[in-house]
Design a binder for these strands. Structure first.
Length: 566
RNA sequence: GUCCCCGUAGCUCAACGGAUAGAGCAGCAGCCUUCGAAGCUGUUGGUGGGGGUUCGAUUCCCUCCGGGGACGCCA
């Protein structure tokens, strides 16, 4: 809030957008701007001179907010007036919606994420899309967007033909002794992998072709496998505490439209035949051509994605259409967006939110085709088990049930935070050690901080700090860590806005970590409950409860739960 | 061969083009008769190489090196 205000005022005086920065040392001020450097260059003056000039222009407007110092090196530094932070805290402490906004009001955003394949259990590679997308959707929702959480199920294509081919070769009908009813995703994966290894490529293509042409047996099996898969997938979402999706649509849903889509493109002269296939020439976009129909007349991922895009635009008329999909598919989306542009159907802002892949411990790709995957369930089990050992060790008095519940929240929190705190572009090496680290810059550290703060509140017997607090009391908050906390609270909305702007979550994750670190410093230095000064005690409880609430809301936006006791 | 992403401390990662490049882990030295030690305090250690743009470059541009990925019948 304050940063935005400073930016507005300074920008107006400077006649261009100014950056509001944080000085490296608190002694230099609370905020600063480097705008004088930029203007000095243009006007041929000295930075210090320009800084002075701007200072005199903006001083009246900021008289009750901060003191301004123009440095000889050209920086313009702002020192908040005594009482300013306390007044801000007073307002924030009363605002249950703090951090939320209505800047997205009236706008619709579709966020596609997770998008697992049927017949293949979710593995570590699906995790990133799932938790990044879930958290991004939370953020846009908090900013007032109408947010559609879209799960685009990979339930069509040659890959599924391979499962069918494998099934027919090794499954129940081939005398495996297993009942069709008992088939699991693990079985399907097994068939898929074996088919890839031991059956000729055409087998899978043939089975898929039959499916696409409506073959009764294949259709029946496909339905069965799809149901089983979706059930397993939804269980995983529950365990991961992923927000419910608004739309589950599969690639198969678009299959019936593909014939007319292709006809339409042909009529418009957008696609042509080449070596028996139908292609979309993308030379003018400097991209490789897009393949829309294979020479055996079966369709492709790109074809279905195009149909799906048209469907989404038509049905929801979104302002933004977002795809949270791994880096690996960057070219696919470049082609898809180029085609959309060429067809003039992009009424929405299209964005591919890409992220690096999860690589094996050897730094190589983890390919499902080679059966070289880390199933998501294994990861969840392992991390929850580890959390369980730690929880038990820290709280010997808890019973089994409590240990179980707490370790679930802690384990999932660790898993999610470990991913979200990182900048999404880089590949991440799958590293059990880092993943299972529950201390330091980790999810449990933040959860621990939260429950520590709540613990003080519970012991204080002042449950409703809101009614007990008045701004005068808050003036008693003069410790450096108290000041630091109040200042950090002001940055919460900025952290959220940054995530929304750059489609990353690490800004919020790191913000919450910094806030927690300061809160822990405060915790060590200030013994709140021992205070003889009752007014100051209430003021500190207000501060604590506001920090705790911010931590909770921030973590919840990341899809991470908090507990009053962990 | 073409295109995309990445390269920062021993390891895993931060840093809207700004002041002294920050954390965690690991290592070392401390802090539990005081609100929860999953914590706190101190400490060792770094921008792949070379050019360029800029008052200022980890950030932008070029080039080289290294890692990953994608490139007409997978998704």
């Amino acid at each position: 809030m304050i940063r935005r205000k400073l930016q507005e005022i300074v920008s107006k005086a400077a006649g261009r957008t100014a950056d509001i920065l944080m000085p490296p040392d608190a002694k230099l001020g609370d905020y600063s701007t480097n705008i004088a450097f930029v203007l000095a260059k243009e006007q041929g003056k000295k930075p210090a001179e320009v800084a002075e000039q701007i200072k005199s222009q903006i001083e009246p407007g900021l008289a009750d907010t901060c003191d301004i110092k123009a440095l000889s090196n050209g920086y313009l530094n702002f020192f908040l007036k005594p009482g300013f932070l306390q007044n801000q805290l007073s307002e924030i402490s009363k605002d249950d919606r703090y951090g939320q906004s209505d800047e997205g009001k009236g706008k619709t955003i579709i966020v596609e994420y997770s998008s697992p394949n049927i017949a293949k259990p979710m593995h570590i590679g699906h995790l990133r899309s799932t938790i990044i997308g879930d958290a991004l959707a939370n953020i846009y929702e908090a900013l007032g967007y109408k947010t559609i959480r879209w799960n685009y199920i990979g339930d069509w294509g040659t890959q599924f033909g391979k499962v069918l081919a494998g099934y027919k070769k090794w499954g129940p009908s081939a005398g495996s002794g297993q009942a069709l009813e008992d088939v699991t995703m693990a079985d399907m994966l097994d068939w898929y992998v074996r088919a890839g290894k031991d059956l000729p490529e055409e087998e899978g293509q043939k089975e898929f072709k039959k499916l696409e042409e409506g073959d009764a047996e294949n259709k029946e099996l496909w339905k069965k496998f799809r149901d089983v898969s979706l059930r397993e997938i939804k269980t995983t979402y529950q365990i991961l505490e992923i927000h419910d999706f608004d739309v589950y649509k599969g690639e198969s849903d678009y299959d019936p439209q593909l014939g007319s889509l292709i006809e339409e493109l042909e009529r418009a002269g957008k696609i042509k035949e080449s070596e028996g296939a139908l292609i979309f020439d993308l030379d003018k976009y400097n991209l490789p051509l897009g393949l829309l129909r294979k020479s055996d007349r079966a369709t492709l991922y790109l074809t279905r994605d195009l149909a799906s895009m048209k469907d989404r635009l038509k049905e929801y008329n979104p302002d933004t259409l977002m795809y949270v999909v791994a880096n690996q598919q960057a070219l696919h989306f470049e082609q898809l967006f180029a085609i959309a542009h060429d067809l003039k159907i992009n009424t929405a802002y299209l964005v591919h939110v890409k992220f690096g892949m999860v690589l094996g411990e050897d730094g190589k790709k983890l390919a499902t085709r080679e059966g070289k995957v880390v199933p998501l369930q294994d990861v969840i089990e392992k991390i929850t088990a580890l959390a369980g050992t730690v929880v038990k060790q820290k709280n010997p008095e808890l019973d089994e049930r409590q240990v179980h519940d707490i370790s679930h929240v802690v384990g999932i929190g660790a898993l999610k935070y470990n991913d979200l705190k990182q900048h999404p572009y880089s590949d991440i090496a799958f590293d059990w050690k880092a993943m299972l680290d529950l201390s330091g810059n980790s999810g449990p550290y933040l959860q621990y901080t939260y429950s520590r703060l709540v613990s003080i509140l519970k012991k204080s017997e002042i449950l409703n700090t809101k009614s007990e607090t008045n701004p005068e009391n808050l003036k008693l908050l003069t410790e450096p860590t108290e000041r630091a906390l109040m200042k950090q609270l002001l940055d919460f909305p900025d952290a959220i806005a940054k995530c929304a702007e750059f489609y990353t979550l690490n800004a919020l994750a790191l913000y919450l970590y910094d806030l927690s670190a300061t809160a822990n410093q405060f915790y060590e230095l200030v013994h709140v409950l021992d205070d003889d000064n009752a007014a100051r005690k209430v003021a500190r409880l207000t501060l604590i409860s506001t920090v705790a609430r911010t931590l909770k809301q921030g973590l919840n936006l990341l899809g991470i739960q908090t507990l009053e006791r962990i």
